[in-house]
Nucleic acid binder design. Structure first.
Length: 232
DNA sequence: GATGAGTTTCCTGATT
DNA sequence: CAATCAGGAAACTCAT
């Protein structure tokens, strides 16, 4: 079964593009819908079955659909992890998804959970779906938020600045603005730099950050990833 | 409902 | 003096 699924039907070299584009594309593409006609009595197409009752084949079809629609890089998906029934798939935790498919795992997990709770109607309202997914894709951890801000000049607005790009040393230029932005992300208008920096200090323990003895200066530690120029 | 990770909140004291 | 750093302690939130 595992070998019978040709990897070439996935998008082996597709990069990880804007998934929101794919969502809107999906709904504006009328040719997409006839795909649902394929279902027959003995071999139903995955959207017509609740994920809990998916066969291994349904899981594969769903995986393939997600890869196609969201331009997920099939190379980062460990296929043996997904050689499971729908019931087993549904019992997988978010961490297991991430272990099995890295960043793609986060998307797959989110899409699956949404389908489980809302059924296929999850796809009904493009605008709401778009918003929900955008929300979901925001990294929830503070250090990832800081990292992503550092990596996107548009959002950053000079709030953070690289001090030493190679070594992962950066400076908080506008501490109040940073706190405000983090507060917006967490929907907490009482956030301050004092409190945010306390959370950053906890990262010294876990190796996400390393101490730099300068005011407002931090450094990514060995357990932080995704900030290096060459990687990612 | 219990547990644990990741904060959030608050605080006291030191440093810049 | 105001802002920041250092952590301890406890509350809180959310996923498992």
């Amino acid at each position: 079964m595992l070998d019978s699924v040709t990897h070439s039907t996935f998008l082996p070299n597709a990069s990880f593009c804007d998934p929101l584009m794919s969502w809107t594309d999906l709904f504006s593409n009328e040719e997409y819908y006839p795909a649902f006609e394929h279902q027959t009595a003995c071999d139903s197409y995955w959207p017509s079955v609740h994920p809990e009752y998916w066969t291994k084949r349904h899981v594969w079809e769903w995986l393939q659909f997600c890869c196609d629609q969201y331009k997920l890089d099939a190379n980062c998906i460990s296929f043996c992890h997904f050689n499971v029934s729908g019931l087993q798939l549904c019992s997988m935790t978010q961490e297991e998804f991430i272990e099995a498919a890295g960043v793609c795992g986060e998307y797959l997990y989110f899409i699956l959970q949404s389908m489980r709770s809302q059924g296929y109607s999850f796809f009904n309202d493009p605008e709401e779906t778009k918003a929900t997914i955008k929300d979901c894709l925001q990294s929830s951890h503070l250090w990832e938020f800081v990292r992503d801000l550092l990596l996107s000049p548009e959002e950053n607005c000079g709030i953070l600045e690289w001090e030493d790009r190679e070594q992962g040393i950066f400076r908080v230029v506008k501490s109040e603005a940073l706190a405000k932005m983090w507060g917006q992300r967490k929907r907490n208008d009482r956030m301050t730099y004092e409190k945010l920096s306390r959370a950053l200090r906890y990262y010294y323990k876990t190796g996400i950050l390393e101490r730099v003895d300068r005011r407002l200066v931090y450094k990514f530690g060995k357990n932080a990833h995704g900030w290096q120029e060459d990687k990612l």
